[in-house]
Nucleic acid binder design. Structure first.
Length: 500
RNA sequence: GGUCCUGUGGCCGAGUGGCUAGGCAGAGCUCUGCAAAAGCUUCUACAGCGGUUCGAAUCCGCUCGGGACCUCCA
Protein backbone atom coordinates (compact mmCIF):
# COMPACT_ATOMS: atom_id res chain seq x y z
CA UNK A 1 0.00 0.00 0.00
CA UNK A 2 1.37 3.34 -1.00
CA UNK A 3 1.76 6.37 1.22
CA UNK A 4 -1.15 8.75 0.99
CA UNK A 5 -1.10 12.26 2.36
CA UNK A 6 -3.76 14.90 2.64
CA UNK A 7 -2.85 17.64 0.21
CA UNK A 8 -4.25 21.02 1.23
CA UNK A 9 -3.93 22.12 -2.38
CA UNK A 10 -6.42 19.58 -3.67
CA UNK A 11 -8.21 18.95 -0.37
CA UNK A 12 -7.85 15.24 -0.90
CA UNK A 13 -5.74 12.39 0.26
CA UNK A 14 -3.36 11.62 -2.58
CA UNK A 15 -0.82 8.93 -3.25
CA UNK A 16 2.61 10.40 -2.62
CA UNK A 17 4.76 10.21 -5.72
CA UNK A 18 8.04 12.10 -5.63
CA UNK A 19 9.09 14.04 -8.71
CA UNK A 20 12.42 12.23 -8.75
CA UNK A 21 12.25 8.97 -6.83
CA UNK A 22 14.01 8.15 -4.56
CA UNK A 23 14.79 11.81 -3.87
CA UNK A 24 12.33 13.88 -1.89
CA UNK A 25 12.52 17.61 -1.27
CA UNK A 26 10.67 18.91 1.76
CA UNK A 27 10.42 22.49 2.93
CA UNK A 28 8.98 23.37 6.32
CA UNK A 29 8.48 26.90 7.59
CA UNK A 30 10.75 27.36 10.57
CA UNK A 31 10.59 29.68 13.53
CA UNK A 32 10.85 33.43 13.74
CA UNK A 33 13.61 33.74 16.29
CA UNK A 34 12.32 36.78 18.09
CA UNK A 35 11.19 34.92 21.18
CA UNK A 36 11.31 31.65 23.02
CA UNK A 37 9.53 28.69 21.45
CA UNK A 38 6.35 27.45 23.09
CA UNK A 39 4.29 24.29 23.06
CA UNK A 40 2.42 25.40 19.94
CA UNK A 41 5.68 25.48 18.01
CA UNK A 42 6.45 21.94 19.05
CA UNK A 43 3.68 20.44 16.96
CA UNK A 44 4.84 21.24 13.40
CA UNK A 45 8.45 20.46 14.14
CA UNK A 46 7.62 17.14 15.76
CA UNK A 47 5.03 16.35 13.09
CA UNK A 48 7.39 17.00 10.22
CA UNK A 49 10.25 15.33 12.01
CA UNK A 50 8.12 12.19 11.94
CA UNK A 51 7.29 12.79 8.28
CA UNK A 52 11.01 13.13 7.60
CA UNK A 53 11.84 9.98 9.54
CA UNK A 54 9.02 8.02 7.94
CA UNK A 55 10.03 9.00 4.41
CA UNK A 56 13.56 7.85 5.16
CA UNK A 57 12.18 4.64 6.64
CA UNK A 58 10.39 4.06 3.34
CA UNK A 59 13.74 4.36 1.62
CA UNK A 60 13.54 7.88 0.25
CA UNK A 61 16.55 10.15 0.24
CA UNK A 62 15.14 13.28 1.75
CA UNK A 63 16.48 16.80 1.71
CA UNK A 64 14.68 18.52 4.54
CA UNK A 65 14.97 22.30 4.49
CA UNK A 66 13.72 24.33 7.41
CA UNK A 67 14.43 28.02 7.56
CA UNK A 68 15.24 30.34 10.41
CA UNK A 69 13.48 33.66 10.06
CA UNK A 70 15.91 36.11 11.54
CA UNK A 71 15.19 39.14 9.42
CA UNK A 72 12.63 41.41 10.94
CA UNK A 73 9.11 40.76 9.95
CA UNK A 74 7.47 44.09 10.40
CA UNK A 75 4.37 44.35 12.43
CA UNK A 76 1.98 47.22 12.55
CA UNK A 77 0.77 47.97 16.00
CA UNK A 78 -1.22 51.10 16.15
CA UNK A 79 0.45 53.72 14.02
CA UNK A 80 4.01 52.52 14.05
CA UNK A 81 5.55 50.07 11.69
CA UNK A 82 8.43 48.38 13.38
CA UNK A 83 10.74 45.55 12.83
CA UNK A 84 9.63 42.94 15.34
CA UNK A 85 13.17 41.88 16.04
CA UNK A 86 14.50 45.41 16.23
CA UNK A 87 11.81 46.41 18.66
CA UNK A 88 12.60 43.60 21.04
CA UNK A 89 16.29 44.28 20.67
CA UNK A 90 15.90 47.81 21.88
CA UNK A 91 13.79 46.67 24.80
CA UNK A 92 16.36 44.13 25.85
CA UNK A 93 19.30 46.32 24.91
CA UNK A 94 20.78 43.73 22.64
CA UNK A 95 22.08 43.82 19.12
CA UNK A 96 19.51 42.36 16.72
CA UNK A 97 21.84 39.59 15.71
CA UNK A 98 22.64 38.89 19.33
CA UNK A 99 18.96 38.46 20.05
CA UNK A 100 18.52 36.30 16.99
CA UNK A 101 21.42 34.13 18.04
CA UNK A 102 20.04 33.76 21.56
CA UNK A 103 16.66 32.54 20.40
CA UNK A 104 18.14 30.41 17.65
CA UNK A 105 20.22 28.65 20.27
CA UNK A 106 17.17 28.21 22.46
CA UNK A 107 15.21 26.85 19.53
CA UNK A 108 17.92 24.32 18.73
CA UNK A 109 18.04 23.33 22.38
CA UNK A 110 14.29 22.68 22.29
CA UNK A 111 14.54 20.64 19.11
CA UNK A 112 17.28 18.52 20.63
CA UNK A 113 15.19 17.97 23.74
CA UNK A 114 12.38 16.68 21.58
CA UNK A 115 14.77 14.37 19.77
CA UNK A 116 13.97 16.03 16.45
CA UNK A 117 16.56 15.27 13.82
CA UNK A 118 18.26 18.37 12.49
CA UNK A 119 17.12 19.33 8.99
CA UNK A 120 19.45 18.79 6.05
CA UNK A 121 19.72 22.52 5.50
CA UNK A 122 18.68 25.27 7.87
CA UNK A 123 19.03 28.50 5.91
CA UNK A 124 18.58 31.92 7.44
CA UNK A 125 16.68 34.80 5.90
CA UNK A 126 19.50 37.24 6.56
CA UNK A 127 21.89 34.92 4.76
CA UNK A 128 19.78 35.04 1.61
CA UNK A 129 19.09 38.72 1.07
CA UNK A 130 20.79 38.57 -2.32
CA UNK A 131 18.58 35.71 -3.51
CA UNK A 132 15.50 37.52 -2.28
CA UNK A 133 16.43 40.72 -4.09
CA UNK A 134 17.06 38.75 -7.29
CA UNK A 135 13.68 37.15 -7.01
CA UNK A 136 11.96 40.48 -6.47
CA UNK A 137 13.75 41.89 -9.52
CA UNK A 138 12.41 39.01 -11.57
CA UNK A 139 8.89 39.57 -10.36
CA UNK A 140 9.12 43.27 -11.24
CA UNK A 141 10.56 42.42 -14.65
CA UNK A 142 7.59 40.20 -15.39
CA UNK A 143 5.23 42.95 -14.38
CA UNK A 144 3.80 41.40 -11.22
CA UNK A 145 5.31 43.85 -8.78
CA UNK A 146 5.76 47.58 -8.62
CA UNK A 147 7.88 49.98 -6.68
CA UNK A 148 6.32 52.68 -4.57
CA UNK A 149 8.33 55.09 -2.48
CA UNK A 150 11.26 52.72 -1.90
CA UNK A 151 9.06 49.69 -1.20
CA UNK A 152 8.04 46.96 -3.61
CA UNK A 153 4.60 45.35 -3.66
CA UNK A 154 3.28 42.26 -5.33
CA UNK A 155 0.38 42.99 -7.69
CA UNK A 156 -2.12 40.40 -6.50
CA UNK A 157 -4.91 41.68 -8.73
CA UNK A 158 -2.89 41.28 -11.92
CA UNK A 159 -1.56 37.93 -10.83
CA UNK A 160 -5.03 36.68 -10.10
CA UNK A 161 -6.38 37.85 -13.45
CA UNK A 162 -3.56 36.29 -15.47
CA UNK A 163 -3.22 33.04 -13.57
CA UNK A 164 -6.92 32.35 -13.05
CA UNK A 165 -6.98 31.53 -16.74
CA UNK A 166 -4.37 28.86 -16.10
CA UNK A 167 -6.41 27.49 -13.23
CA UNK A 168 -4.07 28.96 -10.64
CA UNK A 169 -5.88 31.92 -9.10
CA UNK A 170 -4.61 33.71 -6.04
CA UNK A 171 -6.36 31.68 -3.36
CA UNK A 172 -5.73 28.29 -4.94
CA UNK A 173 -4.37 26.91 -1.69
CA UNK A 174 -6.68 28.44 0.87
CA UNK A 175 -9.82 28.39 -1.23
CA UNK A 176 -10.29 32.11 -0.93
CA UNK A 177 -11.86 34.21 -3.63
CA UNK A 178 -9.92 37.41 -4.09
CA UNK A 179 -12.98 39.57 -4.66
CA UNK A 180 -14.41 38.49 -1.31
CA UNK A 181 -11.27 39.60 0.44
CA UNK A 182 -11.10 43.12 -0.85
CA UNK A 183 -13.00 44.94 1.85
CA UNK A 184 -11.82 42.82 4.75
CA UNK A 185 -8.26 43.98 5.09
CA UNK A 186 -7.77 46.25 8.00
CA UNK A 187 -5.87 49.50 8.16
CA UNK A 188 -2.20 48.87 7.48
CA UNK A 189 0.76 51.14 7.46
CA UNK A 190 1.55 52.81 4.16
CA UNK A 191 -1.62 51.31 2.76
CA UNK A 192 -1.87 54.15 0.27
CA UNK A 193 1.31 53.00 -1.44
CA UNK A 194 -0.44 49.86 -2.59
CA UNK A 195 -2.56 49.71 -5.72
CA UNK A 196 -4.88 47.28 -4.03
CA UNK A 197 -5.40 46.33 -0.47
CA UNK A 198 -4.62 42.68 -1.10
CA UNK A 199 -1.17 43.50 -2.47
CA UNK A 200 1.63 42.44 -0.17
CA UNK A 201 5.13 43.73 0.40
CA UNK A 202 8.13 42.09 -1.23
CA UNK A 203 10.51 44.77 0.02
CA UNK A 204 9.98 47.44 2.60
CA UNK A 205 11.78 50.72 2.79
CA UNK A 206 13.51 50.95 6.16
CA UNK A 207 12.59 53.91 8.30
CA UNK A 208 15.61 55.72 9.81
CA UNK A 209 15.36 54.03 13.21
CA UNK A 210 15.34 50.57 11.67
CA UNK A 211 18.58 48.79 12.46
CA UNK A 212 18.23 45.74 10.26
CA UNK A 213 18.60 47.14 6.74
CA UNK A 214 20.16 46.18 3.48
CA UNK A 215 21.08 47.97 0.30
CA UNK A 216 18.81 47.20 -2.64
CA UNK A 217 17.94 48.60 -6.07
CA UNK A 218 15.07 50.40 -4.32
CA UNK A 219 17.11 51.92 -1.52
CA UNK A 220 17.84 50.69 1.99
CA UNK A 221 15.27 48.36 3.38
CA UNK A 222 14.41 44.82 4.36
CA UNK A 223 12.59 41.92 2.71
CA UNK A 224 8.86 41.33 3.01
CA UNK A 225 7.68 38.44 5.06
CA UNK A 226 6.88 35.86 2.39
CA UNK A 227 9.76 36.18 -0.04
CA UNK A 228 12.40 34.45 2.08
CA UNK A 229 10.68 31.09 1.90
CA UNK A 230 10.20 31.34 -1.84
CA UNK A 231 13.83 32.29 -2.36
CA UNK A 232 15.33 29.65 -0.09
CA UNK A 233 13.03 26.85 -1.16
CA UNK A 234 13.86 27.54 -4.80
CA UNK A 235 17.56 27.73 -4.09
CA UNK A 236 17.84 24.46 -2.20
CA UNK A 237 14.99 22.37 -3.55
CA UNK A 238 14.52 23.68 -7.06
CA UNK A 239 11.67 25.33 -8.89
CA UNK A 240 9.36 22.46 -8.12
CA UNK A 241 9.71 20.21 -5.11
CA UNK A 242 7.69 17.56 -3.34
CA UNK A 243 6.44 18.65 0.06
CA UNK A 244 5.81 21.98 1.67
CA UNK A 245 4.79 21.89 5.29
CA UNK A 246 3.82 24.19 8.08
CA UNK A 247 1.09 25.10 10.51
CA UNK A 248 -2.44 25.63 9.30
CA UNK A 249 -2.28 29.24 10.33
CA UNK A 250 0.35 29.81 7.66
CA UNK A 251 -1.86 28.59 4.86
CA UNK A 252 -3.15 32.08 4.32
CA UNK A 253 -1.65 34.44 3.56
CA UNK A 254 1.89 33.14 3.93
CA UNK A 255 1.81 30.04 1.76
CA UNK A 256 -0.61 31.61 -0.68
CA UNK A 257 1.83 34.44 -1.24
CA UNK A 258 4.71 32.04 -1.56
CA UNK A 259 2.85 30.24 -4.31
CA UNK A 260 2.19 33.50 -6.13
CA UNK A 261 5.80 34.66 -5.94
CA UNK A 262 7.32 31.36 -6.93
CA UNK A 263 4.83 30.76 -9.71
CA UNK A 264 5.69 34.10 -11.31
CA UNK A 265 9.42 33.39 -11.08
CA UNK A 266 9.48 29.71 -11.93
CA UNK A 267 6.33 29.33 -14.00
CA UNK A 268 5.09 26.43 -11.95
CA UNK A 269 3.60 25.75 -8.56
CA UNK A 270 6.49 25.41 -6.13
CA UNK A 271 5.38 22.29 -4.27
CA UNK A 272 3.21 19.36 -5.19
CA UNK A 273 2.02 18.37 -1.74
CA UNK A 274 1.08 20.95 0.86
CA UNK A 275 0.82 19.53 4.35
CA UNK A 276 -0.59 21.54 7.22
CA UNK A 277 -0.67 20.52 10.85
CA UNK A 278 -3.51 21.72 13.04
CA UNK A 279 -3.14 23.85 16.13
CA UNK A 280 -2.60 22.96 19.76
CA UNK A 281 -5.37 24.50 21.79
CA UNK A 282 -5.60 25.27 25.45
CA UNK A 283 -9.07 25.41 26.92
CA UNK A 284 -10.31 25.14 23.36
CA UNK A 285 -8.43 28.22 22.18
CA UNK A 286 -5.42 28.24 19.94
CA UNK A 287 -2.17 28.69 21.79
CA UNK A 288 -0.55 31.79 20.45
CA UNK A 289 1.33 34.86 21.48
CA UNK A 290 -1.55 37.15 20.66
CA UNK A 291 -3.87 35.17 22.92
CA UNK A 292 -1.46 35.41 25.82
CA UNK A 293 -1.94 31.73 26.62
CA UNK A 294 1.37 30.24 25.65
CA UNK A 295 3.39 27.80 27.69
CA UNK A 296 7.05 28.08 26.82
CA UNK A 297 9.12 24.98 26.34
CA UNK A 298 11.33 25.83 29.30
CA UNK A 299 8.22 26.19 31.49
CA UNK A 300 6.93 22.86 30.27
CA UNK A 301 10.18 21.05 30.98
CA UNK A 302 10.51 22.66 34.42
CA UNK A 303 6.84 22.62 35.43
CA UNK A 304 7.15 26.28 36.24
CA UNK A 305 3.76 27.49 35.02
CA UNK A 306 0.42 28.08 36.80
CA UNK A 307 -1.33 25.54 34.59
CA UNK A 308 1.12 22.78 35.35
CA UNK A 309 1.31 20.68 38.48
CA UNK A 310 4.64 19.14 37.55
CA UNK A 311 7.48 19.12 35.05
CA UNK A 312 7.05 17.13 31.86
CA UNK A 313 9.78 15.35 29.98
CA UNK A 314 10.21 16.36 26.33
CA UNK A 315 9.46 12.79 25.27
CA UNK A 316 6.11 13.05 27.07
CA UNK A 317 5.23 16.11 24.99
CA UNK A 318 6.37 14.33 21.86
CA UNK A 319 4.26 11.31 22.70
CA UNK A 320 1.27 13.49 23.58
CA UNK A 321 1.47 15.10 20.15
CA UNK A 322 1.82 11.77 18.35
CA UNK A 323 -1.25 10.41 20.13
CA UNK A 324 -3.39 12.54 17.87
CA UNK A 325 -3.53 12.75 14.10
CA UNK A 326 -1.65 15.83 12.94
CA UNK A 327 -4.62 17.41 11.17
CA UNK A 328 -6.80 17.48 14.27
CA UNK A 329 -6.67 20.16 16.88
CA UNK A 330 -5.08 18.87 20.05
CA UNK A 331 -6.40 20.19 23.32
CA UNK A 332 -3.77 20.65 25.93
CA UNK A 333 -4.25 20.26 29.65
CA UNK A 334 -2.26 19.16 32.64
CA UNK A 335 -4.50 16.09 32.97
CA UNK A 336 -3.96 15.11 29.35
CA UNK A 337 -0.20 15.35 29.76
CA UNK A 338 -0.29 13.29 32.93
CA UNK A 339 -2.16 10.62 31.02
CA UNK A 340 0.45 10.67 28.30
CA UNK A 341 3.27 10.48 30.79
CA UNK A 342 1.91 7.33 32.38
CA UNK A 343 1.05 5.76 29.09
CA UNK A 344 4.51 6.45 27.68
CA UNK A 345 6.22 4.98 30.73
CA UNK A 346 4.20 1.81 30.48
CA UNK A 347 4.90 1.57 26.78
CA UNK A 348 8.63 2.15 27.08
CA UNK A 349 9.09 -0.25 29.99
CA UNK A 350 7.45 -3.04 28.03
CA UNK A 351 9.42 -2.13 24.92
CA UNK A 352 12.77 -1.93 26.69
CA UNK A 353 12.23 -5.27 28.38
CA UNK A 354 11.15 -6.98 25.20
CA UNK A 355 14.05 -5.66 23.13
CA UNK A 356 16.73 -6.88 25.51
CA UNK A 357 15.07 -10.20 26.32
CA UNK A 358 16.37 -13.38 24.82
CA UNK A 359 13.77 -15.48 23.04
CA UNK A 360 15.71 -18.60 22.13
CA UNK A 361 12.78 -20.69 23.31
CA UNK A 362 10.62 -19.03 20.76
CA UNK A 363 10.83 -21.33 17.83
CA UNK A 364 7.68 -23.34 18.11
CA UNK A 365 4.98 -20.77 18.19
CA UNK A 366 2.48 -22.91 19.99
CA UNK A 367 -0.20 -20.25 20.05
CA UNK A 368 -1.20 -19.76 16.43
CA UNK A 369 -3.94 -17.29 17.24
CA UNK A 370 -1.56 -15.12 19.23
CA UNK A 371 1.07 -15.16 16.49
CA UNK A 372 -1.50 -14.19 13.92
CA UNK A 373 -2.85 -11.44 16.11
CA UNK A 374 0.59 -9.95 16.71
CA UNK A 375 1.52 -10.16 13.05
CA UNK A 376 -1.66 -8.37 12.10
CA UNK A 377 -1.15 -5.63 14.68
CA UNK A 378 2.41 -5.04 13.51
CA UNK A 379 1.62 -5.09 9.83
CA UNK A 380 -1.03 -2.47 10.39
CA UNK A 381 1.61 0.03 11.56
CA UNK A 382 2.59 0.73 7.98
CA UNK A 383 -0.97 0.67 6.78
CA UNK A 384 -1.94 3.35 9.31
CA UNK A 385 1.07 5.52 8.62
CA UNK A 386 0.39 5.29 4.92
CA UNK A 387 -3.08 6.66 5.56
CA UNK A 388 -1.98 10.25 6.07
CA UNK A 389 0.42 9.47 8.88
CA UNK A 390 -2.02 8.24 11.47
CA UNK A 391 0.39 7.99 14.37
CA UNK A 392 -2.57 7.76 16.78
CA UNK A 393 -3.69 4.45 15.32
CA UNK A 394 -0.19 3.04 15.33
CA UNK A 395 0.12 3.89 18.99
CA UNK A 396 -3.26 2.26 19.69
CA UNK A 397 -1.96 -0.92 18.11
CA UNK A 398 1.24 -0.75 20.10
CA UNK A 399 -0.91 -0.62 23.21
CA UNK A 400 -2.58 -3.81 22.15
CA UNK A 401 0.86 -5.39 22.05
CA UNK A 402 2.05 -3.99 25.39
CA UNK A 403 -0.16 -6.22 27.61
CA UNK A 404 0.96 -9.26 25.65
CA UNK A 405 4.61 -8.39 26.23
CA UNK A 406 3.93 -7.81 29.92
CA UNK A 407 2.09 -11.10 30.17
CA UNK A 408 5.15 -12.85 28.77
CA UNK A 409 7.34 -10.95 31.20
CA UNK A 410 5.12 -12.06 34.09
CA UNK A 411 5.08 -15.59 32.68
CA UNK A 412 1.35 -15.57 32.12
CA UNK A 413 2.21 -16.38 28.55
CA UNK A 414 5.07 -18.73 27.78
CA UNK A 415 7.85 -17.55 25.53
CA UNK A 416 7.48 -20.57 23.31
CA UNK A 417 3.95 -19.48 22.52
CA UNK A 418 5.59 -17.07 20.07
CA UNK A 419 7.33 -18.23 16.95
CA UNK A 420 10.82 -17.04 16.10
CA UNK A 421 9.39 -15.24 13.09
CA UNK A 422 6.90 -13.35 15.24
CA UNK A 423 9.59 -12.34 17.71
CA UNK A 424 11.91 -11.02 15.05
CA UNK A 425 9.08 -9.22 13.27
CA UNK A 426 8.03 -7.63 16.55
CA UNK A 427 11.54 -6.60 17.49
CA UNK A 428 12.24 -5.16 14.07
CA UNK A 429 8.99 -3.27 13.68
CA UNK A 430 8.70 -2.01 17.24
CA UNK A 431 12.19 -0.60 16.97
CA UNK A 432 11.43 0.90 13.57
CA UNK A 433 8.31 2.67 14.74
CA UNK A 434 8.97 3.50 18.37
CA UNK A 435 12.61 4.47 18.11
CA UNK A 436 13.36 5.28 14.48
CA UNK A 437 10.13 6.86 13.27
CA UNK A 438 8.44 8.20 16.37
CA UNK A 439 11.76 9.08 17.95
CA UNK A 440 10.61 8.11 21.42
CA UNK A 441 13.31 7.69 24.01
CA UNK A 442 13.32 6.01 27.36
CA UNK A 443 12.91 8.38 30.23
CA UNK A 444 15.46 6.50 32.28
CA UNK A 445 18.28 8.81 33.12
CA UNK A 446 20.29 6.64 35.45
CA UNK A 447 23.34 5.74 33.46
CA UNK A 448 25.55 7.04 36.18
CA UNK A 449 27.66 4.16 37.40
CA UNK A 450 28.12 5.46 40.91
CA UNK A 451 24.41 6.03 41.39
CA UNK A 452 23.75 2.59 39.98
CA UNK A 453 26.15 1.12 42.51
CA UNK A 454 24.57 2.98 45.43
CA UNK A 455 21.10 1.87 44.43
CA UNK A 456 22.22 -1.70 44.05
CA UNK A 457 23.68 -1.54 47.53
CA UNK A 458 20.39 -0.32 49.00
CA UNK A 459 18.48 -2.94 47.07
CA UNK A 460 20.71 -5.65 48.48
CA UNK A 461 20.37 -4.39 52.06
CA UNK A 462 16.63 -4.36 51.60
CA UNK A 463 16.66 -7.85 50.19
CA UNK A 464 18.54 -9.10 53.25
CA UNK A 465 16.09 -7.35 55.55
CA UNK A 466 13.20 -8.98 53.73
CA UNK A 467 14.77 -12.40 54.13
CA UNK A 468 14.86 -11.79 57.89
CA UNK A 469 11.24 -10.60 57.65
CA UNK A 470 12.44 -7.25 58.86
CA UNK A 471 9.81 -5.37 56.90
CA UNK A 472 10.29 -2.20 58.91
CA UNK A 473 13.74 -1.80 57.46
CA UNK A 474 12.82 -2.97 53.98
CA UNK A 475 9.84 -0.63 53.78
CA UNK A 476 11.89 2.24 55.15
CA UNK A 477 14.37 1.83 52.32
CA UNK A 478 11.64 1.59 49.73
CA UNK A 479 9.59 4.49 51.09
CA UNK A 480 12.47 6.85 51.55
CA UNK A 481 13.79 6.12 48.09
CA UNK A 482 10.28 6.76 46.79
CA UNK A 483 10.28 10.12 48.54
CA UNK A 484 13.45 10.92 46.61
CA UNK A 485 11.72 9.92 43.38
CA UNK A 486 13.24 6.48 43.00
CA UNK A 487 10.63 3.78 42.76
CA UNK A 488 11.51 0.17 43.52
CA UNK A 489 9.54 -2.70 42.08
CA UNK A 490 9.75 -6.31 43.17
CA UNK A 491 9.64 -8.38 40.05
CA UNK A 492 8.08 -11.82 39.81
CA UNK A 493 11.43 -13.52 39.43
CA UNK A 494 12.67 -12.10 42.74
CA UNK A 495 14.70 -9.37 41.11
CA UNK A 496 14.24 -5.71 41.84
CA UNK A 497 14.00 -2.94 39.27
CA UNK A 498 13.80 0.77 39.77
CA UNK A 499 12.66 3.82 37.91
CA UNK A 500 13.87 7.31 38.55
C1' G B 1 -19.33 40.02 7.20
C1' G B 2 -16.48 36.16 4.04
C1' U B 3 -13.97 31.17 3.79
C1' C B 4 -13.48 26.71 6.32
C1' C B 5 -13.20 23.16 10.30
C1' U B 6 -15.45 20.90 14.42
C1' G B 7 -18.88 18.89 18.60
C1' U B 8 -17.26 11.10 20.62
C1' G B 9 -17.87 8.31 27.57
C1' G B 10 -14.76 12.03 33.93
C1' C B 11 -10.25 13.73 30.70
C1' C B 12 -7.25 13.23 25.97
C1' G B 13 -8.24 11.21 21.52
C1' A B 14 -8.99 7.27 16.71
C1' G B 15 -12.82 6.03 13.57
C1' U B 16 -16.42 7.99 9.34
C1' G B 17 -22.37 3.48 6.59
C1' G B 18 -22.93 -2.82 9.67
C1' C B 19 -17.06 -5.31 13.04
C1' U B 20 -13.95 -3.80 20.60
C1' A B 21 -10.22 1.98 18.69
C1' G B 22 -6.42 3.22 22.22
C1' G B 23 -4.54 5.91 26.50
C1' C B 24 -5.38 8.19 31.43
C1' A B 25 -8.77 8.17 35.48
C1' G B 26 -12.76 4.93 38.26
C1' A B 27 -14.53 -0.21 40.01
C1' G B 28 -13.62 -5.52 40.92
C1' C B 29 -10.33 -9.73 40.84
C1' U B 30 -5.32 -12.20 40.58
C1' C B 31 -0.31 -11.90 42.11
C1' U B 32 2.27 -9.88 46.64
C1' G B 33 4.62 -9.79 53.78
C1' C B 34 2.66 -4.97 52.40
C1' A B 35 3.24 -1.71 48.35
C1' A B 36 4.21 -0.53 43.45
C1' A B 37 4.08 -2.53 38.84
C1' A B 38 1.72 -5.99 35.84
C1' G B 39 -2.30 -9.22 34.06
C1' C B 40 -7.58 -10.20 33.69
C1' U B 41 -12.61 -8.27 33.98
C1' U B 42 -15.64 -3.97 33.99
C1' C B 43 -18.80 1.05 34.09
C1' U B 44 -19.63 5.85 31.65
C1' A B 45 -20.17 7.63 24.18
C1' C B 46 -20.98 9.38 19.67
C1' A B 47 -24.58 17.84 20.91
C1' G B 48 -30.12 18.07 19.63
C1' C B 49 -34.12 17.36 16.08
C1' G B 50 -35.61 15.56 11.42
C1' G B 51 -34.37 12.82 6.79
C1' U B 52 -31.89 8.96 3.46
C1' U B 53 -30.95 3.56 4.29
C1' C B 54 -32.41 -3.15 5.67
C1' G B 55 -28.85 -0.55 8.90
C1' A B 56 -25.76 6.03 10.83
C1' A B 57 -21.46 8.22 15.67
C1' U B 58 -20.34 7.89 10.29
C1' C B 59 -24.33 10.55 4.58
C1' C B 60 -28.06 14.96 3.97
C1' G B 61 -30.91 19.17 6.22
C1' C B 62 -31.97 22.32 10.24
C1' U B 63 -30.97 24.03 15.36
C1' C B 64 -27.55 24.89 19.23
C1' G B 65 -22.37 25.03 20.84
C1' G B 66 -16.89 25.40 19.98
C1' G B 67 -12.80 26.79 16.92
C1' A B 68 -9.36 28.54 12.82
C1' C B 69 -8.12 31.92 8.93
C1' C B 70 -9.23 36.73 6.61
C1' U B 71 -3.55 40.84 10.85
C1' C B 72 2.29 38.75 13.19
C1' C B 73 1.20 33.76 14.41
C1' A B 74 3.30 26.78 14.27
Amino acid sequence: MALKVYNSLTRKKEVFEPINTPYVGMYVCGPTVSGESHLGHARPFITFDVVYRYLMHLGYKVRYVRNITDAGHFEEEGREAEDKITKKAILEKLEPMELVQKYTNLFHWGMTQFNNLPPSIEPTATGHIVEQIEMIKNIIKDGYAYEANGSVYFDVEKYNTDFSVKGQPYGILSGRILDDQLDTTRELDNQDEKRNKSDFALWKKAPPEHIMRWQSPWGEGFPGWHIECSAMATKYLGEEFDIHGGGMDLQFPHHECEIAQSTVCNHKLPARYWLHNNMITINGKKMGKSYGNVIKLSELFSGNHPMLTQAYAPSTIRFFILQSQYRSTLDFSNDALQGSEKALRRLMEAYDWFMQEDFVEAIVGTDTTLNEKLTKLVNEFTEFMNDDLNTAKVIANIFEIVPIINAIKDKHIAKHALSAATVSLLKEQLKAFITDIFGLVTTKTADNNKLEGVLQLLINIRKEAKQRKDFVTSDKIRNELAALGVQLKDEKDGGVSYTI
